[in-house]
Amino acid sequence: MANIEVGGKSYETDEEGYLVNLSDWNTDVANFMAQTENITMTDQHWEVVNFLREYFDEYQIAPAVRVLTKAIGKKLGAEKGTSEYLYGLFPYGPGKQACKIAGLPKPTGCI
């Protein structure tokens, strides 16, 4: 367990930096998480992060990268449903990094 400070508020995270309580999430927290991952959030990043949050809301799991890639392709267009595109946005893994920024747990099926 650890804590992060954002805008004067304290949020609980696990030892890998994932938010412990899903309901703590807000855009300030997301931007802070992105910063710690050396990512500057753009509309393209937000699109993926928001997609992940919707996916979690629907299925209660954070999808594995393979599943995320396929699902993004279906929802946002084939040109975005590729590893190249997603790794371009999240170089250290769209599963890990995007999930962290989205306030979700580490993806299920991510070994």
Binding site: Y59, Q60, P63
Partner: peptide
Amino acid sequence: TKNFSPAYRALEDY
């Protein structure tokens, strides 16, 4: 307790 039943609907994606 966490309701994990919605995840069965994601099996198709997997």
